[in-house]
């Protein structure tokens, strides 16, 4: 029983990271109906930025926030330069551009920071906490991801800008008619998604170590989480992310073993698409014609 509780709690801890990446994916999906295949790669790049800032002697949290800010700017820039021209293009085009972005970010990461696996520091102590159920890092990173998720929620729910961003995602035409600069809202959404990814990268890197392909598996779990919760529901994506974390941990411990965890994500994706394509909290999905 104790082992089981341990697995659940540590599943929630990793689930928080999936939840934030899933949220980043859903934010862009809601606004553009595109899925950013490069989300994971962008987060990895951000994590390297943090490491670089730490290595030049900045304190951890300064480096962390610096990287979040830089990632935000990079996200905005990518939207303005790359995504704007293909905003209304067919799916093949957008997938092509996103995969292209994935490859370029991955290469640039490898080229700038080389391909060797690096250790990444955690700002939290490694001591077990909560009666040994969680390491200090797991507890701390769960706290950080929760803080991020809650602030994102508050931002969207209770600020003018957040409201305008939601409006732009739901109904761009009407948004323009009340004076919302829709183009900039999309760019801000990209920036925010990149910033969230940056946090997720920094929280996961101490556990899995840092290399240019660090996030490819995490992206898969985030996909699974987003689909499970409903790809057009931010709240659903967050819950889905946590659920995938728990399922992954329990499945890894009791069912398939740790070597098949990625396959578990695949199974979740296929099951959701087969059994309940709209996810747990999403609206019904219609294929666009």
């Amino acid at each position: 029983m104790e082992g089981f509780i341990h697995q659940v709690i540590s599943g929630i801890a990793t689930g928080g990271i999936y939840a934030s990446v899933a949220l980043a994916l859903v934010m862009i999906y809601q606004a553009t109906h595109h899925v950013n295949f490069a989300q994971g790669e962008m987060a990895t790049f951000s994590t390297y930025i943090t490491l670089t800032l730490i290595n030049i002697g900045l304190p951890y949290w300064v480096a962390f926030l610096g990287a979040v800010a830089i990632s935000f700017v990079i996200g905005v820039a990518i939207e303005r330069l790359l995504m704007r021209p293909v905003a209304n293009a067919p799916v093949l085009t957008s997938v092509g551009v996103f995969v292209g972005l994935l490859l370029i970010v991955n290469s640039v990461t490898g080229w700038m920071f080389d391909y060797t696996i690096k250790q990444f520091p955690s700002p939290f102590s490694g001591k077990p906490m909560l009666g040994g159920f969680l390491s200090g890092h797991e507890l701390g990173s769960t706290g950080v991801t929760l803080a991020v998720l809650i602030s994102v929620y508050l931002f969207f729910k209770h600020t003018r800008l957040g409201l305008a961003m939601r409006a732009a995602a739901f109904n761009p035409v009407s948004s323009r008619l009340v004076g919302v600069r829709v183009g900039w809202m999309l760019a801000l959404g990209w920036g925010l998604a990149a910033a969230i990814g940056s946090v997720a990268g920094c929280m996961v890197a101490p556990i899995v170590f840092l290399d240019p392909n660090m996030m490819s598996g995490i992206l898969l779990y985030a996909f699974a989480g987003a689909l499970l919760g409903g790809i057009d529901s931010p709240l659903g994506a967050v819950l889905g992310g946590f659920m995938v974390g728990v399922i992954e941990n329990l499945g890894g411990a009791y069912v398939v073993g740790t070597e098949l965890k990625l396959t578990l994500a695949l199974i979740i994706i296929i099951s959701v698409l087969t059994l309940k394509p709209s996810g747990l909290m999403g609206r019904k999905v219609y294929s666009r014609v």
């Binding site: 409201l163 939601r166 409006a167 739901f170 109904n171 035409v173 009407s174 008619l177």
Partner: peptide
């Protein structure tokens, strides 16, 4: 606008 342009989800 025609169709009233309501933000249905809000």
């Amino acid at each position: 606008p025609d169709g009233r342009g309501t933000f249905m989800e809000l």
